[in-house]
Amino acid sequence: MHPVVRWFHQLGSPPYFERFAARWAPIAYIAGLLVMAYGLYGALFVVPADYQQGDSFRILYIHVPSAWMSMAAFALMALYAAIALIWRIKLCEILAMACAPVGAAFTLITLATGSIWGKPMWGTWWDWDPRLTTELILLFLYLGVIGLYNAIDDRRNASRAAGLLAIVGVALLPVIHYSVTWWNSLHQGQTISLFGTSHMDPSMLPPLWAMVIGTHLWFVGSLLARARADNLRRESGKDWVARLAEPRA
């Protein structure tokens, strides 16, 4: 068997995943924190104020990466849920459900920072604008997935039901992305593009990319840590968990 394929098979084993997550989650957290520290320093102290928005545009450096992360986490959750439903891989159920709280946290940051940014720029904390409304629906979907997962006692049935909701909910992602194009929106159009041309001054971009990479690394750390907790919860009666919990001399 190819070593990579064997590694994937091994990763599906709960004790192996526990060791893997316990080792890599702190590394991902630290890497994410360091990259975000660089990005935040650039965003707050290096990048000049915007000629129209003044310093308020600095909110962009946490708002945009969080918004991208909120959608990426949902897409990943739906992907894991689909794999779990098709191939019945327990680890994918765990990973899918671990995506939900982290994604919800990033969605909350997106909505809160957007609201704070909207007050000085638009003169209002909130508007039923297509982009804002669809992002709010995304938060409700995340909360729905978390609620459904915790409402059913049987972990496997719970993750299947919640996973199905995640798969259906993924249809919202293109609506969020294109909402500023499809409808007449108060929210500004796309100014930053991953692959195309960004309508921002190049001097303002490096901290943004640092924040995007930093939030992704942080997401990996949080995903592994949450999946580890759920893995231990599901395997609570097993000998390997009891051995793990034994106080070390």
Partner: peptide
């Protein structure tokens, strides 16, 4: 400068 809004947003984060 909108400094207070920036501080509030980063605190939420």
């Amino acid at each position: 400068s909108y400094q207070n809004y920036v501080i509030a947003a980063y605190c939420v984060f």
